[in-house]
Design a protein around this nucleic acid. Sequence first.
DNA 1: TACGGTTTCTACAACGTTGTAAGCAACGTT
DNA 2: AACGTTGCTTACAACGTTGTAGAAACCGTA
Lengths: 337, 337
Amino acid sequence: MRHRLKDVAERAGVSVKTVSNVVNGYLHVKPDTRARVEEAIAELNYRPNLSARNLRKGRTGVIALAVPELDIPYFAELARHVVVAAAEHGWTVLIDQTGGGPEQERVAASGIADHMIDGLIFSPLALTADDLAGLDGMPMVLLGERVDHGPADHVVIDNVAAAREITGHLAGLGRRRIAAIGSQRTPEGASARLRLEGYAAGLADAGIAYDDRLVAPAPAWHRADGAAAMRQLIDSGARPDAVFCFNDTLALGALRALHEAGLRVPEDVAVAGFDDIEDGRFSIPTLSTIAPDKERIARLAVELLAGRLNGDRAAPPRELQVPYQLTPRESTRPATA
Amino acid sequence: MRHRLKDVAERAGVSVKTVSNVVNGYLHVKPDTRARVEEAIAELNYRPNLSARNLRKGRTGVIALAVPELDIPYFAELARHVVVAAAEHGWTVLIDQTGGGPEQERVAASGIADHMIDGLIFSPLALTADDLAGLDGMPMVLLGERVDHGPADHVVIDNVAAAREITGHLAGLGRRRIAAIGSQRTPEGASARLRLEGYAAGLADAGIAYDDRLVAPAPAWHRADGAAAMRQLIDSGARPDAVFCFNDTLALGALRALHEAGLRVPEDVAVAGFDDIEDGRFSIPTLSTIAPDKERIARLAVELLAGRLNGDRAAPPRELQVPYQLTPRESTRPATA
DNA sequence: TACGGTTTCTACAACGTTGTAAGCAACGTT
DNA sequence: AACGTTGCTTACAACGTTGTAGAAACCGTA
């Protein structure tokens, strides 16, 4: 049986509001009254009804994190950091899995929001700035890259620079036939577009001509897509001597396909990824990658949201950039080593 | 600006309750009244306040899923299935990350629960049946194995049988020095205990003597722990020709350590895991494992919870067993192949 | 016209909490 | 002794919703 303030009040012989004051740490309560109330609370194992509190206060203490898929390691790792960072602000995180489709993301952005959560941290794939316009001022922080600057706060990394740098890293090994895996033509592929741009810039830096036949699309960025794309590159006769995969799961799939084709990594083909997921630190070979500071991303997102919630909701949207780190591992080890 | 029933009612020229009736699909509303109300709802972009509704109805439409860590692939995959299954029942899932410590799990079990959620699906590591006793009848389903039968519904797989079967599989390859990685002495290690028991039974089946020196503990079940345990087994001179790791992440770590030690898998050492996470299907070599039916686990958990919520809360706790599948892959490929 | 029955709608109260305003002691100051 | 001040406590209303009970309008039949 669940108890209410009223039950505690009766037991302690005080008013309901006094119990409320004790629960909320109000200062002016006589020590012995407080003790009596606390005793009653303990005896009845009283717990506040959050729905009622939320109704009264207009706040729920819950924020939502909407990600495309939970079992993509990057998002899972991100989610972990967000949960931790949110807890430091006293928030619980409601995790929503959108699947990445435009319609579902729209539902997530508007539907979930209904008075159940105080704010939203959103990692959209398909959503456009327009979709977000109808959100009635739900405080929101967007993660990841969007080409167009929407109406909400943003936490991003410099995808173009990172992709350019890692492409340069591959060129620095002496590779000339550097392939890319993960391009996408759909409007959802904002990350893909930026990373492709960085790849092209990296090639240009090294004086290598961009070759369409070395760029393989991937409908999604799962391991299976990476393996399929790699196989296709191998079969096409394009003979790459390095591959930059637009994320680590693609790269892990590519490693697998190379292995099955009897090609050695990095001797025959060097492989680089993007995201620095845990798997890449233990794969065979270990995976060179771009390591974004995920903890910082999560922390900043939560802080931006906190800022909106406590401060000015109408302030102009901010965009924060988080650093990344080029992290070479075995899959791009120089031949000399 | 957010609107209330009252605003819609004024605009449509009806009472608040009539609007409520329309929103809730009550039958006896004249078509043209309904139309007027719906128009007003659309114009104001009205959304019900869920806190108020919850307060009134005593239900929130949210269930919680508490897991030790989100970035352990097994839990992430499980979470994905739970979210999907819950959505089919109209529930949103609040995901809570306990960290696996006893105190945090206790907080998760009792604290989160406070009127914010209708029920809880809990995958505990450290919690005992006693800890769960004080939960005041919060409907709850436990996932994974517990030695003692607690007061709540359970969805489990037969750990002992599965571990025994995969140990037998290793023995069937002709291996005699079959090691185990992942044993735990702590009371939290219920899974470890059961899988160790199955391992011992599997050895006995094959007429192999149990050898303490071939059993390596792992404080947690991460890749790093698996790698460390494997290194220790190698260095100890125990010379295993097969390893059964108590989960896939341990096994992936072990693969890595074997690779670094210059040992071939499966030729020198066969490796088997448990859980069938996505990584194991793309690792080099691919990982033989026990594949529990995660989707079924999630679905059953949600259905058990639904049963509690809609039906008899006082019914005796049920325990459902979900099938698993021994899934041989490259890491235990027979020498002849 | 009157009547019972159905359909459609409304007023009111309640869910459990907290903000507001005000009440009552106890105290020190004039 | 009267007074303001401070500390502590309380009654009441309100947050936005829905269940209950019943009123009003409408229908067909006697």
